[in-house]
Design a protein around this nucleic acid. Structure first.
Length: 775
DNA sequence: GTATAAACACTTTTT
DNA sequence: GTGTTTATAC
């Protein structure tokens, strides 16, 4: 029987889908139908008679896996699709690790530490070792541990590596080896793996247990990897080992969209795929179905400035489209107003619903001003990023109980809940407990189980409190084998006193906590029902935990189909598309980020990030930058991003200035003037969205002639106005060009009467008006 | 052992 | 400007 779906594909897509002879690399340009190729390829493999359980398809997000699974299910039937090994790297290998856990000294119920747990553990270790946590910053230390794990460097290897040792000495953190060693020992003691362990331990498992490797090698007849440009060394090696036998592997990705190197992703994996698999075929998907020709061409001209890449010619056959509009604003606040105004004006046209619009920024902190600007004008929006559901304190607390019940050795969970709700077990006692455990090489739970054996130095009252807590957890653990996850969850929040504690007060925070916990219970209920519906007997607490510990905010987004503007970071936007895209904050030290400007490699990644941002747009792309911006509580002055110069100007619409002007010096006279303009100018110029959307913003301050002395301290001294002679021509942002009729000082404020021709005569306060004097 | 205030630090973050 | 952590008093 002929595979019925081939007609849905273009030539290059079809070639990529039907080639199953050996390793293949599919370079999928932005918007070129990458997911389509992956899903069709899986369907095609099934069509050729391959069993679903012998296909391994790896993605980076649960969402991607879920969507692909759904689409394949629609093509070949859910009863087939459900047997596919399709999921994130982490979830697939967590599953394999649970099966094989005993081989590497873990139990199948091991806990997965999230980043907060890992950080807390590092912090505790640094403190115990009496090191300065200003020097050994937990985040930095964890980063080094994470890179080590992603490069498959175990603590022993770390100690033996002179390069790493020297690097640590240079970074003034010579105790890294000891911290790393202790960190791993503690995780093991707690029967816990962090995110990186899921990949590292899989590698160790395959390295040290050839029979296990062989088992999975023969199980997986075909391996597919999505977003291959984002794989790190640990992922690369797992895939390589698994594929070693049949070399039936297809990886899909786009080197131009590699933006996760800070998480260990190595772009070389995709760039040098041919070295790993010399017989590999290369397929390029170069037709972009998403964006206008102008957007595609602009993005091409940008990415062309990068040196490390696989050359390709992305093209679009859609309409030519409008140029990318670049806009210069004075301040971040005005940028917000500009975005809101433009969205509103677009929205008046049919086909431009709010849901078609996204505002993308480099850092989450930029969202505030934008949010306020949109809210001020009553525009509906949704923000991605920030605290996810599972990172909220109350949820983490409840989940910590679940974790502790499932795995009492889970020290991070124990620390979290042993005194929450308050049971009179304070820091001192917990400190003694942990200290005692660590000196005896036991887990905290071991000590709790038999305090006398370990000589825990506490008085009788404290000992009783500890015993009570221990009995509570034990009692719940005993129930966990018989009750399903939902019944258990209810039992937990009652028995632990959690419910009573949150119900106690009626403060708004407490009410919101209750809501969130109810939400959690609802989710657990759904989980149990789904399992029951599928006829599976794995709806117990550990099963639920195994599922959620690898879930993140991306997965919890409510089916929110309300028509809202989307606000998110460029990173979060990867893989998405919008009719209209705003890219804001295109400024030096922000985009590219100040942290990425030192070496060319990082800079190229930032350029790819900009590329990702532009290629999210289907029809219109608006790029803006501000001259000054609040950052970290301070006002900062900035220059336009160097990346703006990388785009071929023929695709841009930027009338008001070129961004080739030399860098401005901070604290110059101009900037003082700017500060003044910001403070006063704002109220008169960005009122409630009166400004028409496409009015060119005021000219850059650089070209301003002095209109008033830099008496910025707002003293009541009369302000001179000798810089503005009667008869001079000036330009105003809204009224246009006008002639000065007269100037005067009224109540210490310099004023000018200006004739704007058909706009009429206006009396303007010079300190409010942004006037450009024309020569 | 717990509640307050000052001190602090702050890119991006698929898991 | 915001949220988190640590120091201090209760």
């Amino acid at each position: 029987m002929e595979f019925p779906f081939l007609n849905d594909l273009n030539d290059s897509q079809r070639e990529a889908v039907t080639y199953t002879g050996g390793p293949s690399l599919v370079i999928a340009g932005a918007g070129s139908g990458k997911t389509r190729v992956l899903t069709y390829k899986v369907a095609y493999l099934l069509h050729t008679g391959m069993h679903p359980a012998s296909i391994l398809a790896l993605t980076f997000t649960n969402k991607a896996a879920r969507e692909m699974k759904t689409r394949i299910g629609q093509m070949v039937g859910y009863d087939t699709a459900r047997y596919l090994w399709m999921g994130t790297f982490h979830s697939i290998f967590a599953r394999i690790l649970r099966t094989e856990a005993e081989r590497i000294g873990y139990t199948h119920r091991f806990t997965i530490y999230d980043t907060a747990d890992s950080k807390s553990l590092v912090k505790a270790i640094v403190k115990e070792m009496q090191l300065d946590d200003k020097v050994y910053k937990p985040g930095v230390v964890l980063g080094r541990i994470s890179s080590a794990k992603n490069s498959l460097v175990t603590p022993q290897a770390y100690a033996a590596d002179s390069g790493l040792q020297q690097s640590d000495r240079l970074a003034k953190v010579p105790m890294m080896t000891e911290i790393y060693t202790t960190y791993c020992a503690r995780c093991k003691q707690a029967d816990a793996m962090d995110f990186d362990d899921l990949l590292l331990q899989t590698n160790l498992l395959f390295r040290d247990h050839p029979d296990v490797l062989q088992k999975y090698q023969s199980l997986f007849q075909y391996i597919l990897v999505d977003e291959y440009q984002d794989t790190n060394f640990a992922q690369y090696l797992i895939v390589k080992k698994l594929a070693e036998r049949h070399e039936k592997i297809c990886v899909v990705g786009d080197d131009a969209q590699s933006i996760y190197s800070f998480r260990g992703a190595n772009i070389d994996n995709i760039l040098t795929f041919k070295n790993t698999y010399p017989s590999a075929r290369l397929f390029k998907l170069e037709q972009n179905y998403r964006s206008t020709q102008t957007i595609v061409n602009a993005a091409n001209s940008l990415i062309d400035k990068n040196s490390a890449q696989i050359r390709k010619t992305i093209f679009s056959q859609k309409e030519k489209g409008e140029p990318l509009k670049v806009t210069n604003l004075y301040t971040d606040l005005e940028e917000g107003t500009y975005v809101a105004d433009t969205i509103r004006s677009l929205h008046r046209r049919p086909g431009y619903g709010y849901g078609e619009v996204a505002v993308l920024y480099r850092t989450n902190s930029q969202s505030r001003v934008l949010e306020e600007a949109l809210r001020k004008q009553g525009l509906p929006y949704k923000i991605y990023g920030g605290l996810s559901f599972y990172q909220r304190k109350e949820i983490k607390d409840v989940v910590a109980y679940f974790r502790l019940i499932t795995n009492p050795n889970d020290e991070e969970s124990l620390k979290r809940v042993i005194n929450y709700p308050a049971r009179g077990i304070g820091d001192t006692t917990v400190g003694k407990l942990l200290d005692c455990a660590h000196t005896h090489g036991a887990s905290a739970w071991d000590v709790l189980t038999d305090p006398l054996k370990y000589n825990l130095p506490v008085n009788a009252g404290t000992a009783a409190k500890l015993a009570k807590f221990r009995d509570l957890i034990n009692a719940l653990a005993a129930q966990a084998g018989t009750l399903n996850a939902y019944d258990m969850a209810q039992s937990v929040i009652k028995a632990t006193g959690f419910l009573a504690d949150t119900l106690l007060d009626r403060s708004p925070e407490s009410l919101s906590k209750q809501d969130n916990v109810q939400e959690l219970l609802k989710a657990i209920h759904e989980f149990c029902e789904n399992k029951a519906a599928a006829g599976e007997d794995n709806a117990y607490l550990p099963d639920y935990l195994a599922e959620i510990s690898l879930l993140t905010d991306q997965d919890t987004d409510q089916a929110d189909d309300a028509d809202r503007v989307t606000l998110m970071t460029v990173h979060a936007a990867k893989g998405l598309e919008f009719k209209v895209v705003f890219i804001v904050g295109m400024e030096e030290e922000l985009f590219p980020s100040a942290f990425c400007m030192e070496n060319e490699r990082d800079l190229e990644e930032e350029r790819r990030l900009f590329y990702v941002a532009i290629t999210r747009a289907e029809e219109r792309c608006f790029i803006s930058y501000a001259r000054q911006r609040f950052r970290n509580g301070k006002m900062n002055f900035s220059n336009p991003s160097r990346f703006l110069k990388d785009i071929d100007p023929q695709y841009l619409d930027c009338p008001q200035e070129d961004f080739h002007e030399p860098p401005r010096t901070i604290g110059s006279w101009d900037d003082d003037l700017d500060m003044e303009r910001l403070r006063f100018g704002h109220g008169s110029f960005s009122p409630s969205g009166r400004q028409p959307a496409f009015v060119p913003p005021p000219a850059p301050p650089k070209r301003l002639t002095k209109l008033q002395p830099a008496g910025g301290n707002a003293s009541p001294t009369p302000v001179a106005y000798d810089g503005l002679p009667v008869g001079a021509y000036v330009q105003h942002a809204i009224f246009g060009i006008g002639k000065v009729i007269e100037t005067n000082v009224d109540n210490g404020n310099a004023k000018a009467v200006i004739d704007f021709g058909d706009q009429g005569q206006k009396t303007l306060l010079l300190k409010f008006a942004k006037l450009k004097v024309l020569k």
